[in-house]
């Protein structure tokens, strides 16, 4: 049973040099509880792909199915509610709100879902300690470092225990130690709640923790390695050095 399925996904941009086909008939599936890494050179369309899958950008053509729902057949409201309950998102540029402090930023998904204070407190406690930002909670967004912002973004994505995590470079700004913490946290989540994770990354270490690694290049997936294969880590390394 696939939680996420995409077929014939196309997306192109009109640029001054002509039409740029960023996604060219891309097909993709992800099983429940699976962790998939998408790697690829800069500008290859990873972010575009991720945004199309979670419904915040519209592909030119193609079909996307999430659980039993076809994305293009869902109304905007249904999709919003779906995202609210089942998705956790980490953006490459974090997309935290400067108007709110860190606590409020992290709590947003619960607040939007109308959960009560007690639950908010409990969940916040849990994720904040998992990513190690308990001491920062009352600070403003402009007062923390890039790595700290990244952890806030991760905490926001996990706080409502979503079924699918879409993460765009979740460890791009973290040091080795923090990266390990975050990976451990994500692994724990996926084990505890059977969360599926789609992770765009440049980090070999992150990729090697996933069940499957896909290489996106020239508008399509050109390579795929599964954990079950022999010499998984080595093959991932070769794939990522392309």
């Amino acid at each position: 049973m696939y939680v996420l399925k995409a077929e014939g996904l196309c997306k192109s941009y009109q640029t001054s040099e002509g039409i740029l086909n960023v996604l060219d008939h891309v097909c993709f599936q992800m099983k429940q509880g699976e962790k998939v890494a998408v790697v690829g050179p800069s500008g290859s369309g990873k972010t575009t792909f991720l945004h199309a899958l979670c419904g915040i950008d519209k592909p030119d053509s193609g079909m996307i199915q999430i659980k039993d729902n076809i994305l293009s057949e869902m109304s905007d409201d249904e999709l919003s509610l779906f995202r609210r309950k089942h998705f956790g998102m980490i953006f490459q540029d974090f997309q935290l709100l400067e108007s709110l402090n860190i606590r409020e930023n992290i709590l947003l998904p619960l607040i939007l879902d109308g959960r009560d204070e007690g639950e908010q407190k409990r969940c916040l406690q849990q994720v904040a300690s998992a990513v190690g930002i308990e001491k920062l909670l009352d600070k403003g967004i402009t007062e923390i470092s890039g790595g700290q912002k990244q952890r806030v973004a991760i905490a926001r994505a996990f706080i409502h225990q979503p079924e699918i995590i879409f993460a765009d470079e979740p460890t791009g700004n973290l040091d080795c130690k923090s990266t390990t913490d975050v990976i451990n946290c994500m692994t724990k989540m996926s084990e505890n709640f059977h969360t599926s994770e789609l992770i765009v990354t440049h980090d070999l270490y992150v990729a090697s923790f996933c069940d499957r690694v896909l290489l996106l290049e020239n508008g399509n997936f050109t390579g795929e390695i599964c954990r079950e294969e022999k010499n998984f880590a080595k093959k991932v390394m070769t794939l990522m050095s392309v």
């Binding site: 915040i56 919003s80 998705f87 939007l112 879902d113």
Partner: peptide
């Protein structure tokens, strides 16, 4: 606009 964009991502309904 951006603020509402983020809220939409997190599941706020447009209406």
């Amino acid at each position: 606009k951006r603020e509402y964009g983020v809220l939409f991502c997190l599941g706020m309904r447009r209406k």
